[in-house]
Structures are given as structure tokens and as C-alpha cells.
Computed example of a mutant assay.
Amino acid sequence: MNLRQIEVFRAVMLAGSVTDAARSLHVSQPGISRMLSHIELQLGLRLFERRKGKLQATPEAQALFAEVEQVYRGVARIDDCAQALKSGKMLTLRVLCSPSTGLDMVPRALTALGREFPAARFYVEVLMARDMVKRLAAHEADVAISTLAIDDPLLNARPIGQWTLAGVFPKGHPLEARRTLKPADILGERMIAFSPDTPQGRIIADWCLQHGCQPDAQTEVRAGQTACALAAAGAGVAIVDDLTARGCMTDRLSFRPILKAPSFDVFAVTNDNFAASLLTGRFIMHAEATLRQLKNERA
């Protein structure tokens, strides 16, 4: 029996008559009668006895119907599973992110994704770029959001937005009166600097070199969050990425964008050897939208 024959047989069993079965399937009564005759001929079984214009199922039909109902229950379970997957139930998204994106940008994107898929589960971990590569290559994560370019033959990294530089300083500092900061505004202050072997340190060093400035740095750090904490405590002024500046805002810290500061890409990174899940695709879309929103807020 093919699926159409099974459907017609079940409809007749449930309706108890050819007329009602035809009505439920939106087909003609003669078509149902012909199909029943064909099924009985094909199976070599008499499935119904016709008495006084009504159909009476034979024991063979009852036995066959029991098996058909099991199939339909299985189909119903498949449909339930598909609907659950569509809503995010039974699905997990494993997200890796750079420290700066893990403060504000990724949480916003995941919050939006959680509203779209309330039954989904998320796992989030903040890592350095080199550790993201290892985890993604081993398929121990579904997607990474990186502020540094990642070049690996197994991975696909596509830009989804940009970050730039900002100056952070304690609340009430004279720089707070400015809407944007010029290089001379910030480099003339006592600086909290990044170690020269860090990505931020290299970027800021190049930027200072372009402007012919050598910052007066009393304190050296390796992380943007540490720089923000020191600035909030009054230890000096720091240049950090604007994602970290926004994510570290407290009532003791302020930040301003730096005029004509360079911009750098934010990347969504996945493993090319594995198809992206629904959650992965939607998360990347939300991450891209969040970066656009942050850019508008900066403006």
C-alpha cells in the first residue's frame, strides 16, 4: 500500500462510510470506492462488507487499521519534533566570543535570539582568538564572534560589523565635556596602556605612531576591562575598543569616541565542514543587527 491508499483506507475506517470519507478528503465518492476496490484486489483481502448501504470492516481490516494507526502516530511524533525544532526546543547553541563582544554585544544578540526561540538553550564562553580556532576546528562550538581576523582553512570568517577606538576616563573628568576626542586630547593625559605584545597594544601603538605621539603611560594592562576599571578608579585615561568601553560603563566611568579613529571588522566564524543550524544562522543575524544598533548609538 502506498501513502495515498493508506490515507483513503484510514479515512473510511474512521468515517464508517465512503460518503463521509470522501467528504473528509475532499474527493469524489466514486474515487474512494474505486480506491478501496483496488486496495482489496492488490492485497488479496476483503476489507469491508457492504450491508444495506453501509461498510462493515472485516477482522483483517481491523488488524490492518491497528498498524496504520501506529504509522500515523509516528507521523504525528515527527511533526511534533519538527515543530519543537522550529521553536528551538531540543536545540543548543554553543557560542564563543572575544572578551569585548562578550560584555554587551553578544549578550544583546543572545537575548534577542532567546525571545525568538524561548525553548532553546545557549552555552557562551569568552576566549582568545587562538582558542576559538581550536574549539571550532574540533566542532566543540557552533559559532564564534571575534574582533580579530581568523585565517584557518577549516573555518569561515565573515565580517558582520565593525569596532573602533574610544577614550575612557573617570566620571567628572574634563574630557567629559567633549562629544569626540582628538588624539592630542587623550594622548596628553596620564595613560593606562596596553602591553605592546597584545593586539590592542599593537593597534594603539600604530595609531599613536601615525599621530607622532608617545603616550605617558604609568600603568600597563593586558585587557580592556582592566583598563576601564583602572580609569574608573582615577588611575588615568585609556584607549580601548568601543565595545569594551560601552560594556564597562558604570556611574564612575565615561567614554567618548575618538575622532577619525581606525575601524576594524567583527567576524562571525563557523566551521565550513558542518552545516549551520537554524540557531546559528539566526544568532549571526541578531549579532549583525546588534552591531548596526551599536553603531547608530555611537553616532
Rank of each mutant, 00 (worst) to 15 (best):
T92H: 07
L93I: 11
L155I: 05
S146N: 09
E116W: 04
C97A: 15
E176Q: 15
K86C: 11
G161E: 04
R108C: 06
S100A: 15
A144W: 01
P170V: 11
K182D: 15
T111M: 09
D152G: 04
A120N: 05
A141D: 06
I160D: 01
L110Y: 06
F117V: 00
M128Q: 12
H173V: 06
E140I: 07
S98E: 03
I150T: 04
E116I: 01
G88H: 05
A119K: 12
A166N: 01
P118T: 10
G114W: 03
R135K: 10
Q162H: 02
G88W: 00
I150P: 00
P153Q: 10
A141Q: 04
T164S: 14
P183H: 08
T111Q: 13
K89D: 14
A184P: 06
S146D: 11
E116S: 09
L148F: 06
A157H: 05
A138G: 09
R130N: 15
A149H: 11
R121W: 03
L154P: 05
P174D: 04
L175T: 10
A137L: 03
L113N: 02
H139I: 00
R121E: 08
E125Y: 05
P159V: 13
I145G: 03
R178N: 10
R94L: 05
A157P: 07
S146Q: 07
R179D: 14
L154R: 13
R121P: 04
A166K: 00
W163D: 04
D131E: 15
T92R: 12
W163E: 04
P183L: 01
K171S: 07
A112R: 12
D152Y: 08
L155A: 03
E125I: 02
V95Q: 08
L155C: 09
A157I: 06
R94G: 00
R121Q: 10
K171A: 14
M90L: 15
N156T: 10
R121G: 07
D131I: 09
S87P: 07
G88P: 02
M132D: 03
R179P: 06
P107Q: 06
T101W: 07
Y123P: 02
T111D: 07
Y123I: 14
K182G: 11
R121A: 13
R158C: 15
R135Q: 13
T180L: 08
R179K: 14
T92G: 02
L110S: 03
V143P: 00
L181N: 04
W163Q: 03
T180K: 10
A119R: 12
D151Q: 14
Q162S: 11
M105D: 08
R135A: 11
K182N: 14
L136F: 01
L113V: 10
T111P: 00
Y123D: 13
C97V: 12
L154F: 12
A84C: 13
C97Q: 09
G161L: 05
S87M: 01
M128K: 14
A84T: 05
F117T: 08
L136Q: 03
H139K: 13
A144P: 03
L91G: 02
G167P: 02
K86R: 15
G167D: 01
W163I: 02
A109K: 05
